[in-house]
């Protein structure tokens, strides 16, 4: 199968990455050559194979949910592109 420009634009919306037409064309050609390479997998019959979902075949451990890092609000907010008192600021969402 081939990936067309319309699909590229759709994926870029899903991925929240804006791309211009020139970049989209380049991505179209790159992704098609990568998927041509990936499609080799279709030669394999995997109907009876269980998917590998976790490499470490152990059940995930449980631990109590405790606060361990305290009083780091200031440091965390310092990394924010825009803040107001104790809040992160984003462009207006509701009109």
């Amino acid at each position: 199968m081939t990936i067309d420009l319309k699909t590229i634009k759709h994926i870029s919306k899903l991925a929240r990455i804006s791309i211009n037409d020139e970049k989209a064309k380049k991505l179209e050609s790159d992704l098609n050559s990568i998927f041509k390479f990936i499609e080799k997998l279709n030669k394999l019959d995997t109907d009876k194979v269980e998917p590998l979902t976790s490499i470490a075949e152990t059940t995930l451990k449980l631990r109590s949910d405790e606060v361990k890092s305290k009083n780091i609000r200031e440091q965390i907010l310092k990394n924010s592109p825009e803040k107001n008192k104790d809040f992160f600021v984003v462009p207006k969402v509701i009109e």
């Binding site: 991925a15 804006s18 965390i76 924010s80 592109p81 992160f88 984003v90 462009p91 207006k92 969402v93």
Partner: peptide, 21 residues
């Protein structure tokens, strides 16, 4: 939003898309 580079946008989605682009 919380850390890293931000590019300003007309609205929230536009900000996300420009930032990541």
């Amino acid at each position: 939003v919380k850390y890293g580079f931000r590019s300003e946008g007309n609205n929230l989605i536009d900000m996300y898309e420009k930032t990541r682009s």
